[in-house]
Amino acid sequence: MPPPKIDVPPGADQPIATKYGLTYEIPPDWKNEYSAVTGWESDRGEISRYSTIGTFGAGYCPEDKFEGLAVAGATGRSGVDLDTAARDHVHLAERIFASSGERFKPKVQYVGPTQITVAGRPAVRYTAIVTDIPKERKCGPPTSLFDIVATPGYATAEVMILMVELHQGLPGALDPTVTDQIIASLHPSEGYGG
């Protein structure tokens, strides 16, 4: 069970509490899907899965009402250091944006590791800049930004991983500064870290 939804006034950033004892905030025009999960899979099985998600731009393409422009979510890892957790997850971009069967792969440029601080604790950020994404779906993006931040968790896992993915090169695509804002909003959930 995810933590309960945090209600805020209309027009305010929307906090989403994760089961890892950390909360992140999405912009007011995003959809708070705190109880939902998202992820990617291929013919070879599940690639990755994230819970307590926020989404933006669902339905921007009439041919696929589920395709959106952005998504954020969290997962956890134990038994690995921050850099390994972040690096392992960002390198999934090559599989996430590959063609079905992973026969055709996109070009991926990795940026990082960047050492940052989340609520006074160390964190590691990587960005995958994904281009030349194989065009299999009419609504699929030509490029994408896939960001991963790993920081110590307060509950249920040693490391919490925050993922923010922004489609680029499409009408209505968000500016990359939105990812920076979401990452900067990470803080201990009520009852943790204090």
Results as ranks from 00 to 15, higher is better:
residue 174 L to I: 07
residue 165 E to Y: 10
residue 92 L to Y: 07
residue 134 P to W: 00
residue 72 A to H: 08
residue 149 V to S: 02
residue 97 F to W: 15
residue 191 G to R: 11
residue 177 T to S: 15
residue 71 V to N: 12
residue 171 P to H: 12
residue 41 E to H: 13
residue 10 P to E: 11
residue 59 G to K: 03
residue 144 S to W: 12
residue 63 E to A: 15
residue 34 Y to V: 10
residue 189 S to P: 07
residue 137 R to L: 12
residue 32 N to M: 03
residue 53 I to Q: 01
residue 127 T to A: 06
residue 134 P to Y: 02
residue 84 T to P: 05
residue 22 L to C: 01
residue 54 G to V: 00
residue 154 Y to C: 00
residue 131 T to N: 06
residue 96 I to D: 13
residue 107 K to H: 15
residue 35 S to F: 10
residue 61 C to D: 06
residue 4 P to R: 12
residue 42 S to P: 12
residue 75 T to R: 13
residue 18 T to D: 06
residue 140 G to L: 09
residue 139 C to M: 05
residue 45 G to M: 05
residue 115 Q to M: 13
residue 151 T to H: 14
residue 170 L to N: 10
residue 161 I to S: 05
residue 100 S to I: 11
residue 36 A to L: 08
residue 57 G to C: 12
residue 3 P to E: 11
residue 193 G to D: 00
residue 110 Y to T: 07
residue 113 P to C: 03
residue 14 Q to E: 11
residue 30 W to F: 09
residue 19 K to F: 01
residue 39 G to W: 02
residue 24 Y to Q: 00
residue 102 E to Q: 13
residue 140 G to S: 15
residue 21 G to F: 11
residue 29 D to R: 10
residue 109 Q to H: 11
residue 20 Y to P: 02
residue 49 R to Y: 04
residue 137 R to V: 01
residue 30 W to T: 00
residue 153 G to Q: 10
residue 62 P to G: 06
residue 116 I to N: 04
residue 46 E to C: 02
residue 164 V to T: 08
residue 106 P to R: 02
residue 164 V to W: 09
residue 101 G to M: 10
residue 116 I to K: 00
residue 182 I to D: 01
